[in-house]
Simulated scan of single mutants.
Amino acid sequence: MILQMTTARIQNYIGLVIFAALVMVVIGVGSFMKAGALERQADASVLVQKDLYFRDLPDGSVGVISANNGEVIAQVTGQAGFVRGILRAMARERRIRQITSDEAFLLISHSDGRLTLVDPATQNRIDLESFGKDNAAEFAAFLNSPR
């Protein structure tokens, strides 16, 4: 009767075996995956790219200036919440890192329909289509400018 097992003891052993099996599954799956690593999707080819400066103008609007020729290609007036919000975020990152605003931003249209704003000074990028077509269209208008 020394080897007699109670129901509670049998349940404990079954629970221990199930727990050990789950641990082995988790370890096995974890070894095949890069846990916590985000893999960046390769960029599609570039259709159009413009190097742009965004400058505050005396009238309170934001001037969109071509880095190639210094011409104002657009003015962002009024609230223009999305454009101003994106530009504030990019400018804030430059201020935090104490980087001047001398380097132009890159606005890139890709062949897969993505529209990206890149700050070469900080290596930050924002995929604008992630915020919806209407918001991305506000930036796409800068690419379509004839200047």
Rank of each mutant, 00 (worst) to 15 (best):
N68G: 08
T7N: 15
I96R: 07
V76S: 10
V64L: 12
K50M: 01
A8R: 12
N135R: 07
L22V: 12
N12M: 12
D56Y: 08
D112K: 02
V62L: 15
L52P: 01
M33H: 09
M1W: 04
P146G: 11
L106T: 04
N144G: 14
G85I: 03
L107F: 02
R9L: 07
Y53C: 02
H110M: 07
I27A: 11
Q11K: 15
Q123F: 09
I2E: 13
G85W: 06
F139N: 01
F19Q: 04
I14S: 13
G28P: 00
A21L: 15
F32H: 13
F131R: 06
T7K: 11
Y53R: 04
G132L: 10
F82R: 00
I65V: 14
I10C: 05
P58C: 04
G63Y: 02
D102M: 08
F32I: 13
T77N: 15
S109D: 05
K34V: 13
L107Q: 00
L38A: 14
N69Q: 11
L106W: 06
E103W: 04
S66V: 10
E39I: 08
A89N: 10
A35N: 10
N124P: 08
E129W: 09
A137F: 03
R94W: 07
Y13P: 07
A121Y: 02
P120C: 03
G81P: 07
V46C: 04
L52I: 06
L107I: 03
A121M: 09
T116D: 00
E39V: 11
V17S: 11
T6R: 06
S45A: 15
S61M: 10
G70F: 10
E71V: 14
Q49Y: 05
N144P: 03
I14K: 14
Q79T: 15
D51V: 01
A121H: 04
D127L: 05
K133T: 14
Y13L: 14
Q11R: 13
L57S: 15
R88N: 12
T77C: 14
P146C: 11
E129D: 15
A89F: 10
G63C: 05
S130Y: 11
I65H: 01
Q11A: 14
A20D: 08
Q11H: 09
L22H: 09
V118P: 00
A37V: 14
A8H: 05
A74Q: 01
E93F: 09
G28H: 10
D112N: 13
V23C: 12
V29S: 06
I96F: 08
D112W: 03
L52N: 01
A74L: 07
D112Y: 02
A104D: 06
S145L: 02
V26S: 09
V48R: 05
L52H: 00
D56N: 11
R88I: 07
A8F: 08
D43P: 04
G36E: 06
M33Y: 10
D56T: 07
L16W: 08
V64H: 03
A21P: 02
V29A: 08
E39Y: 12
V48Q: 02
F54L: 05
V17Y: 12
E129C: 09
